[in-house]
Write a protein that binds this DNA or RNA. Structure first.
Lengths: 203, 203, 203, 203
DNA sequence: TCGTAACCGAGACGGTACGTCTGGTCTTTTT
DNA sequence: AAAAAGACCAGACGTACCGTCTCGGTTACGA
């Protein structure tokens, strides 16, 4: 896992006392707890340190900012919930992926945290990069596999612009998450997928 | 204009000294200047007050939070840049609207400010409401007029779900603005519009 | 009465609306009430105005500072409680005067208010002058009458320095009021008077 | 020295970074400077911090109020100026003590500062206690030694009430300092001492 | 086995901004 | 012209966190 933070154990057995892996765990656990309770904007390094029973320096030694710490705490849970479906049809795959995302965002505490991370990334360039690399592109490369399979199956043309397709699918979902003007329902997932697939096939 | 803030002059001539409209203007101008220079996260009430030559209380009397002040300062410029196109075809209308949005966001300082406002709305519930009501829904009701005309012209079915269509179009654009994983080009605008229109017609 | 404030009704019937004597009374009453409740340091012009149902300007038009207003509110009650005793002996007179002062200061709310006024006079030069003229010198000229009578009766020498004698008597009392290191008892009054009289007669 | 503030170095080597004694000194120096320039009422924590090149929290960590900080800054200088005289006679001792006090109060900036501290103590209970314990009682216990010696020498009766005697002596002096109705001259010192000693011997 | 390097928790450091409060003034409409 | 009302600028308040910096102490490695 290509973490944001300089992890506890690194290849060349460095001199001096090694990073405490227990501190790592305590920090991430404390951060996750606060994130779930009050969201990213309610999480201060100060409180993470005090809850984890850790000095603030111990946190700053590992993470450069509140945002990258929150990202690690968040991904520990979120990443596993975003599978790579393989249902045999593009529609099935896209629907499954979008539904998994919507489920995580509406059923768990991931929604506000995810929104908070995107918010924080607007002011923390380092988090912006980490977010793009470790979340956006990671997920997109998974989703592109689904599109590859659809091309192989002949469902869609080889010339399809994956980027636009995925921006449409997930852009719409993020839109509702961030602005809250409409709910993230299962019906919405179906409508989006159907419309996009229809659009791909026709254009 | 249904402002976020309690404006200077209200209908019933209130008792006591009236709010100074000059202070209103000075505050909004100072806020707009700082927003353009350093974005919302770099704007403090303290500095707005000092640049506007105004006491902090004079600001807090009018706006409840940094976010709602920034929203007013932002909308003063942004709102005029989002016209209601009428080109005769749905494709032309949607393309014009999307292009205007992309132009504002990429060519002016509106991009980071807009992103900053969305970010701030994730932690300021009052701004969230104002944002939804005064920006999202305001723009969407404009855009729905374009869809209405397309229905009248017989371009699209009367049963089309406007919400989903608009979420796809602008969700994709906001997606690129907020995550920065892909550029907001004119080609992107065309691809999005074409794919969505194709999707509407087929589904 | 040579008040600190510019009073409501003045000799030349001035032009325009006359000062409201009711406002005068309401202000003084409100001030007295707050003084009794929370002392001078807990009294703000803002609150006096709001309790008196009066604009702040109406207060500032009459008094130049919090201190001088408090002084007027205080003297309305205090002044009557400091009589000019005439018992036939110097000891009796001084004791009666000191006892009256101690009674007012320990039995009523005058103690903290008086201390608060002296405190305020250290930072408000205008109050300092008013305090000296309207309280200190006023009382002292009364007390000097007692000493005059003692001279006439042959109890003390005509060369006695009244100022020093009065500073000793009341200085000691104010000392205990302000520093609170010892109580203001009746025994204390007797000891002070006895010692001072003995000192006068011998020196 | 039983300071008002939690001092920099305490007996058991506390955990964490120790209080900076340099900050202590810088704060006290800045406070003393401002006190001399503008008196206690003209001294704000904000300015002390900025002049000392110190964060406000660094001050609040050590002192609970403006008054107790001013007290420490004041005593650093004042305390040394109040010696315990030993001239061989009560009159000589009392006169020397009173003269030292008057000199400090009239010749240095101590006068207004002292008055300001007494004023502040009327509104700050914590300062009131500190003032009583660290100034009033400290000086009085010194002065009582002079009275003890006078008793030993047979100058005054063993039954003399020290408290009353000292209240008369210094009460008169504080009286003139606080009300400013008469000057604090050397003649005044002599008159007060003579009258009090005469009173003690006779009563 | 000993020194030294890097870690650890604790907590102080200089700062920035917060949102509130009050002071004394100014500007309305109403009397 | 004075009244009540309430907005105005100014600036200090005490608090919360920021990210950094000492402390005394611990834990590993390499000499």
């Amino acid at each position: 896992m290509a973490d944001t933070h300089i992890p506890a154990g690194l290849a060349p057995p460095r001199r001096g006392r090694p990073r405490s892996e227990q501190a790592d765990r305590a920090i991430l656990a404390a951060a996750a707890q606060i994130l779930a309770e009050r969201g990213l904007s309610g999480m201060s390094i100060e409180e993470v340190a005090s809850r984890a029973g850790v000095g603030k320096t111990t946190i700053y030694r590992r993470w450069t900012s509140r945002g990258t710490l929150a990202l690690d705490a968040f991904l520990a849970e979120f990443q596993g919930q975003q599978p790579l479906p393989d249902t045999g049809t593009l529609r099935g795959d896209l629907l499954a992926a979008l539904r998994a995302w919507i489920r995580a965002v509406t059923r768990t505490s991931a929604g506000p945290i995810l929104a908070g991370l995107i918010a924080e990334a607007q002011r923390d360039p380092e988090l912006a990069v980490a977010w793009r690399v470790r979340v956006v592109e990671r997920l997109r490369s998974q989703h592109k596999i689904m599109l590859d399979r659809a091309v192989e199956r002949g469902e869609i043309s080889a010339g399809t612009d994956y980027e636009v397709v995925l921006d449409l699918l997930f852009g719409a979902a993020y839109h509702r998450l961030l602005h809250g003007h409409q709910p993230l329902t299962d019906r919405f997932a179906r409508q989006v997928v159907d419309l996009v697939i229809a659009g791909i096939e026709r254009s």
